[in-house]
Design a binder for these strands. Structure first.
Lengths: 109, 109
DNA sequence: TGGTTATTTGGTATATATGCCAAATATGAA
DNA sequence: TTCATATTTGGCATATATACCAAATAACCA
């Protein structure tokens, strides 16, 4: 990109990676589930309703992005939110969503 | 997902779609470029440094997600931010990023 | 109308993401 | 050590995303 040097470009890429970690229904659901406290992989697997390996990979993506943190206790791994400021952003996403719905309804009148 | 009814599931999917629209380096760059005012497709294409058809598709993704709005004037289309609250979220992403860098450096000491 | 500029859309090749199964690893208890 | 439980990782098939080129559409002007 002509007006973006290597460093700037890398920065946008890194930011996109973090946002990408949030951009999946199951991962958003997981984030909601651990908002008020930690949960282990087993419980999250049950809540999400997918294969445990799938959930484990979703959790790895969130952890790798620096969004959640873990606490190993025995054989269990408990996941919790690491970055509360990201949570403030979710209501805004919800607001965009509602506005989209409203606008699309308006088109049909 | 057992603990998620159809409606809830659809809601997470819809939210993920909006976030996904933000999750690309070029689209984040575009958002920065139009934060302080509208820009047309031509200028954005030059700034991003990709094919104009590629940029047009990125813009369509942002528009479809309800993140940006357009103003057609003559043959030109000007894009601007529609949802300022999403911008507040970007500094938090930046903070996560810096924290990740810090932690990964610490591992090497 | 015909030409010029601005933008979008169709098509396609390539890259990335997702989900499941099976296998590997880790932890604690018998 | 051997077993049982909890979690992660490897592999693979399928789905989605991305980028470019070429062609189509839109708006304006001569």
């Amino acid at each position: 990109m002509p007006n973006m040097n290597e460093k700037t470009n890398a920065n946008y890429k890194a930011r996109a990676e973090i946002i990408k970690a949030l951009a999946h229904p199951s991962r958003l659901f997981i984030i909601d589930q651990i908002t008020n406290g930690e949960r282990n992989v087993q419980d999250l697997t049950c809540l999400v309703g997918a294969d445990i390996s799938t959930v484990s990979k979703h959790l790895a993506i969130l952890k790798n992005a620096g969004i959640v943190k873990i606490d190993k206790r025995g054989a269990q791994v408990f996941y919790s939110i690491k970055v509360p400021c990201l949570l403030k952003f979710l209501p805004c996403v919800e607001a965009v969503l509602k506005n989209n719905v409203k606008e699309r309804k308006a088109c049909l009148k």
